[in-house]
Structures are given as structure tokens and as C-alpha cells.
Write a protein that binds this DNA or RNA. Structure first.
Lengths: 111, 111
DNA sequence: GATTGTGGTAACCTTAAAGTAACGATTATG
DNA sequence: CATAATCGTTACTTTAAGGTTACCACAATC
């Protein structure tokens, strides 16, 4: 019988979850999709996220090479975010998660 | 231009992340794989998780229909956990996440 | 009658993530 | 010189997740 202990710190799945597994990151990635989107527009689309947290998450996503940030030297400032190739490759995974959920969870109507 | 606000509460991806996106759940699912595994064995394999948290996560996974719990009427007690069909369908998704990470993140050797 | 093995539970504490509210920089506009 | 627009930052508070320790039930064994 296999009794090897699973080593979290070195597990690619755990690292992926550590990268994506926050409340907002998957939604940010989905919101960006294949487009380049301004900070204010991301914020508006996501509705309830605070600007502080959105900034934080975007910085982390950029550090992880998932999102690219492009700042234009204009005033008032304009900053656009888009997915890198690495980030784009997450879209099919997020899509599978969506399909899995739709298949197994009957849609809940609230309110 | 599309300015629709994204509704998190009704988003299948967000619901999926809410279901899976904890520190331990993906590892539990991966540890179970296609087998039926005793509580103590899961705990031993996962190394650092506390029994309290493991119990908690297993209860939630069972409530979400991802894991099945089978208690044998023996003493000392024996309880085995396994993935339901719904849970088994997560394995390829977790696998894609693993592949994505291995492709993009050079393995880090620590210690 | 003390010890072992198994799958838990209960009470409490710590830490990490997220939320809130106010402010900063810069230029154009009125 | 006050206001608006845009993308932030800073300091502080709240909330949720996870961790720690000790305990319980029950039968078999010594």
C-alpha cells in the first residue's frame, strides 16, 4: 500500500490554487478575457470589489506573469490590463470549471 | 461597449471556486483519486492538515456531493471516503491545473 | 483496571484576506 | 481657485479560515 506523504509545498496543483484561489482572481481573469481593459472598467464590471483589493490582485497577477499592465502617459491617467499568453491558457480551465458547475448544480434563482 | 456588471453570486466559476478554493480541498480530491481511502490514511498522506480541519473539509465536500462517506459498524471504527461521479469529473480539471503550472513555473527546489 | 486504536467533537487562539474611508498626483475646465 | 477625472496609496477594522490542545465513545487486549 502506498503510504507516501503528500508534499504540499512542492505540488503543482497546490501552487496553482495558491495563484488563482482567491475570492476575485478568477473573475478578474474572466473579465479580461481576450481584451485589454482599463482599470476603471474592470472595477465597474466587477461591481463589489474595492479598488484597494483590485489593485492588490492585479499586482499579484502581474507578478505571477498572468496579467500585463500597460500605463499610458496621459492625464488623467489611463492604465490597461490584459492577459499574457500564460494567462490566456487559464481560460479553458476556468471554462471547464464553469461547465462542471452548470452540469451538476441546478441554477439557483435568488430574490 | 459592453458595460454589464458581472454578477458574482450567480457565476458558475465563482461557485466552483467557492466549492474547491480552500487550502486543502484540491489535495483531498487528488489524494482520494479513484480509490476509497480511510480517514486516518488521508490524514497520514496529507501530513500537515489537522484532523479537525480534515473532518470539516470532508463534511463540506460530502454536502457538495463531491465525496461519499461510508462508515463501517466496527470497533475501532472504520470510515472510508471516495469521490462521487461528480467528484471524479474534477480530476481532469485538477490535472489541467497541474500541467499549466508545470509548463509555466520552473520547479522550485527548497532546502 | 489501564492501555491501545479509530474517528471524531468542543473551546479557544492565530493569521491571512478582505473591506472601509480618507487622501495624493496632475492637468483641463469653468 | 474649486471641481472633475483617473489610478492609485495608507491606515485602520472586520471577517473567515485554519491551527492547537484536550477530550469522548467503545471494544479488545494485557
Amino acid at each position: 500500500m502506498n503510504t507516501d506523504v503528500f508534499l504540499c509545498s512542492n505540488c503543482p496543483m497546490t501552487r496553482t490554487m495558491a495563484t488563482l484561489g482567491s475570492k476575485w482572481k478568477p473573475i478578474i481573469i474572466y473579465t479580461l478575457g481576450k481584451k485589454s481593459v482599463r482599470f476603471g472598467m474592470i472595477h465597474a464590471k466587477m461591481g463589489l470589489i474595492s479598488r484597494k483589493v483590485l489593485t492588490q490582485q492585479l499586482v499579484e497577477l502581474e507578478e505571477d506573469g498572468i496579467v500585463a499592465r500597460q500605463a499610458f502617459k496621459e492625464l488623467p491617467p489611463r492604465v490597461e490590463y490584459s492577459l499574457t499568453p500564460k494567462g490566456l491558457e487559464l481560460l479553458p480551465i476556468l471554462n471547464m470549471m464553469t461547465k462542471w458547475n452548470l452540469k451538476h448544480n441546478p441554477t439557483v434563482e435568488e430574490g
